[in-house]
């Protein structure tokens, strides 16, 4: 369970990144955060594992305050939270397996990991994580030999190797093509359901948000302006979140990007919504 209590973030230059956020996210939810760029999506996500510090309020992860944690206490909370990034953030020159194993470092002493003495179970865990995203056969390849979609799956495996209760994904598909986007989102959804891992994803494609989320949170200028189910998130709601009409490039669909479309958003296919409702 993640709880936000009156969370605000003011940047040193006076800009308000987050404004009095109050949220409770329960175990096993698949939350998608939407909003314009600059609305505070990334700040909100990164405040959960404190890659960004907040200036007011308190964030609690399973009853423990990460806002007050420091040193090894902070690292212990962080190792329970996996994170996936837009640009994968893999060490490109290292092997896939070593990248996945690096997700385990928070579980062991610094000395032990630096000497490379990961227990055998860790290697097994890493291999299982790779198996789950279907790239076990790439374990000994160098990360830079993989395609973008494969690299993102490696970073999902790295997050899984942490055995987290929570996975944060910051624009995980923004640098992928539509086909691999679906694969990566399917992987995240499957992991969310199979392992009951709370998953919080920043997205800017509204059709993806509707299709995969169990709950959608809309942010505008650092404030929560919508919080509800995908069914409640109608086009009008999105227009309200964005403060303007919806553009074609905010829909993954099959439209050429760039042009304005006001309300012509295809309804998600029935087969897909079935899964989301569960």
């Amino acid at each position: 369970m993640i709880e936000f209590h009156n969370v605000s973030k003011v940047y040193p230059n006076g800009t308000r990144g987050l404004n009095n956020i109050n949220l409770t996210i329960h175990q096993g939810e698949m939350v998608v955060i939407v909003g314009l760029s600059g609305a505070g999506k990334s700040t909100l996500l990164r405040s959960i594992n404190r890659l960004h510090d907040i200036t007011e309020g308190d964030i609690q992860i399973n009853g423990q305050s990460i806002t007050e944690a420091s040193g090894s206490g902070l690292r212990r909370i962080r190792r329970g939270i996996g994170m996936i990034f837009q640009s994968f953030n893999l060490v490109k020159r290292s092997t896939v397996l070593r990248n996945v194993l690096s997700g385990r470092v928070g579980h062991h002493s610094t000395l032990r990991t630096v000497l490379g003495m990961f227990p055998a179970e860790d290697t097994e865990l890493a291999m299982d994580a790779l198996e789950r995203v279907n790239i076990r056969d790439k374990a000994y390849s160098r990360a830079d030999q993989l395609s973008g979609g494969q690299q993102q799956r490696v970073s999902i495996a790295r997050a899984l190797a942490q055995q987290p209760q929570i996975i944060l994904a910051d624009e995980p598909v923004a640098s992928l093509d539509p086909l691999t986007t679906r694969q990566v989102m399917d992987d995240l959804q499957r992991i969310n359901r199979d392992l009951n891992i709370t998953t919080i994803i920043n997205l800017h494609f509204i059709d993806l948000a509707r299709q995969y989320a169990t709950r959608i949170i809309g942010l505008r200028a650092g404030e929560v302006v919508f919080d509800g189910t995908p069914e409640e998130a109608t086009d009008e709601v999105f227009s309200h979140i964005y403060g303007r009409s919806i553009h074609r490039d905010e829909v993954l669909g099959d439209h050429p990007p760039g042009e304005d479309i006001v309300t012509v958003i295809p309804d998600p296919a029935p087969a897909r919504t079935d899964g989301v409702k569960s």
């Binding site: 890659l51 962080r78 994170m83 990034f85 953030n89 690096s102 997700g103 579980h107 610094t110 630096v114």
Partner: peptide, 16 residues
């Protein structure tokens, strides 16, 4: 800087 950020997020110490 990406990999460093990812490791920090996974709970790694400075040395790690």
């Amino acid at each position: 800087p990406g990999p460093s950020e990812a490791l920090t997020a996974a709970g790694a110490s400075k040395l790690q």
